[in-house]
């Protein structure tokens, strides 16, 4: 075949054919490698997580959540074993490295103790700053098992407890800052990860008073307003002393809220526990008994007589500031629980 002339048609034909074949084959290769690339990426992340937290059996990348902070964001990967939180891997950062941003994966136990730290990304000088990598020196090992509350995350020369890397003050300092950031955000925003909400069994025993039986064994279903609810009767001898109602509500600010509400035989509230919620940390999560006294206002009230609504809505309950929708959903759930209670009385 002789060489083709550079006519307009020949040129367009050649370019068109080549680009078409090229893009088609690239598309094919892309499809082919898409999954391995994803898998490789996830494997890398999981490896870093595995290195900094105790043994886990969940998939932390599936449960990851992000918290925005000044200068970037922190990514949290909760590691759980048999459903229980054993540690949280936190992807943290600092912009104060000798050569720019450093990214670390910091593993904290539920109480905030540092379990391990791995460097994810850095551009520090080889032989100096790169000693922060766990396989290049023992620098990162000194953090393991320390709790930042009594282990000051600052260099010794700055009045802290950290032995810096020789001749590498700036990188060492930046490293400490990144760890501190992970710890601060973890303790501040995310104590609910370390504070466990009570289980259903525990909640029943908390909200009921004055009972001698095992309410959990006597649970039964009550139909109210067309829905089925689980209740747990409390008894002393043969006399009926109260009822705990497992009350789900799907009206929370972010997602469903689930309460366990306890009544005495008269319908007076003896206790409330939050079983589940997804409300905003710092606002909606104040409905948790451990976080505020919001629940205490309900104790001793009888929803049959008292108007269990927010004051804004004409009721007697003080709002949680900044979390009106959550507080309102809570009140609604308590009233619904009373409906279930009175339904159960009539059975």
């Amino acid at each position: 075949m002789a060489k083709r002339e550079s006519t307009f048609f020949n040129m367009v034909l050649a370019l068109l054919t080549i680009t078409l074949v090229a893009s088609a084959s690239l598309g094919f290769i892309y499809e082919l490698t898409k999954e391995p690339i994803e898998a490789a990426r996830a494997a890398r992340k999981n490896e870093a997580i595995r290195a900094v937290v105790p043994d886990f059996d969940n998939n932390p990348t599936e449960e990851q959540y992000t918290i925005e902070v000044a200068g970037g964001e922190l990514v949290f990967y909760p590691a759980k074993k048999e459903g229980e939180l054993v540690g949280t891997a936190i992807e943290t950062f600092t912009h104060r490295g000798f050569s720019g941003t450093i990214k670390l994966m910091v593993g904290l136990l539920p109480d905030g103790t540092i379990h391990g730290i791995e460097v994810l990304e850095h551009k520090e000088t080889p032989g100096l700053g790169d000693k922060m990598e766990s396989d290049k020196s023992d620098f990162s090992a000194q953090f393991e098992g320390e709790h930042p509350e009594d282990f000051q995350l600052r260099l010794r020369q700055d009045g802290g407890d950290v032995d810096g890397i020789t001749a590498t003050t700036i990188s060492s300092r930046a490293y400490c800052e990144a760890v501190q950031r992970a710890y601060d955000v973890y303790m501040d925003k995310d104590a609910d990860v370390s504070y466990e909400l009570p289980s259903r069994e525990e909640a029943v025993e908390i909200v009921l008073v004055n009972f001698a039986n095992n309410p959990l064994r006597e649970e039964y279903q009550v139909t109210a307003g067309g829905n089925q609810y689980t209740v747990f009767p409390g008894r002393r001898g043969r006399s009926y002393t109260g009822l705990a109602v497992d009350m789900p509500s799907d009206e929370g600010y972010i997602g469903p809220i689930r309460l366990m509400v306890g009544f005495d035989s008269e319908g007076v509230i003896t206790g409330i526990e939050v079983l589940e919620h997804e409300e905003t940390p710092g606002y909606g999560d104040l409905i948790e008994n451990a976080r505020s006294d919001f629940y205490k206002q309900f104790i001793g009230l009888n929803p049959g007589e008292d108007n269990i609504r927010l004051k804004e809505d004409g009721g007697i309950i003080d709002n949680i500031s900044g979390a009106t929708i959550t507080a309102r959903a809570y009140c609604d759930a308590v009233r619904s629980a009373w409906e279930v209670f009175s339904e159960a009385q009539n059975m």
């Binding site: 002789a2 083709r4 550079s6 040129m11 050649a14």
Partner: peptide
């Protein structure tokens, strides 16, 4: 031989 001279580099 298929590619004309003038567009060989882009190709």
């Amino acid at each position: 031989n298929f590619v004309p001279n003038k567009v060989r580099i882009p190709c």
